[in-house]
Amino acid sequence: MAGSETAAHASRNGHHKDGLDAFATPRDDQREAGRPLLERAIRAVAGVVQSRVPEADLDERDPDYIRESLPRLWLLASLYFRGEVRGLGNIPEDGPVLLVGNHSGGNLTPDTHVFTLAFSAYFGVERRFHQLAHNLVLSMPLLGFLRKYGTVAASHDNARKALEAGAAVLVYPGGDWEVHRPSWQGGRVDFGGRKGYVRLALDQGVPIVPVVAIGGQETALFLSRGEWLSKALLLDKLFRLKVLPISLAPPWGLNVGDMLGHVPLPAKITVEVLPPIDLRREFGADPDVDEVHDHVMRLMQETLDALAAERRLPLVG
């Protein structure tokens, strides 16, 4: 029963089951008994975590809450990260739009905070704005407030719902793969080959607006994604977690997993919003997904290179 509820819950959220035992049967139970203790324990935790992923409800976004929290975000973005967001005027004034960003900074992503503040201040909290986040982020006990900002679990269905509601949707295709890349790859846009965002934009007929950020990967010393560790612990199958990052970050020192977050170093965050890409106008009636993806990647990488060239010193900007 619990398994069914979990499955139904996951289905409502549009999540892939990804190895979760959605429907337990006697054969499953036998198989379960034969598994090593560690694997069983990890699977049990995965079940609990998956059941904590909240149902995607776009109405949980609370404009009044966002408005009242803007001063807090502003203080953090202005004083600590000296955030600078350019080109917000490139985002269409209204209507649905898919904002595609590169992602940096580990599990605490300062570029998202800086951009959310800038977007909400520029367009007003009344404009629908949703961000797609990893299931694990939304299932963390202390991060429930993110749903008030319009954050929903990253899935094609949730993104589709938000776009159909006329929202601007911020997606980070690189996700956990990109956000935990080593610091020396901070100047690289790396979506890990994920192209679902192109198909989403095509299906929904919405423009793609690339959002390029720099500085996030300087908020800690990211050493390794730890893909091997994630595989060894089955996290890739159970939590859709391809990485188990290893970094040096305060206050922990050596930080494995970054599950409890860390205190980010005060690196200057610069974000540049590029002009919208109308896929069918630029690539014809039936655009090739690979071609569009390559185009977006090239634009974003060129912009990131230009932003990197502006920076004189790490952290300082």
Partner: peptide, 16 residues
């Protein structure tokens, strides 16, 4: 200002 933003709102007003 931002009504209802409490201490952080006051602080942000001073800083700005």
């Amino acid at each position: 200002g931002v009504a209802g933003s409490g201490l952080f709102g006051w602080l942000a007003e001073q800083v700005a």
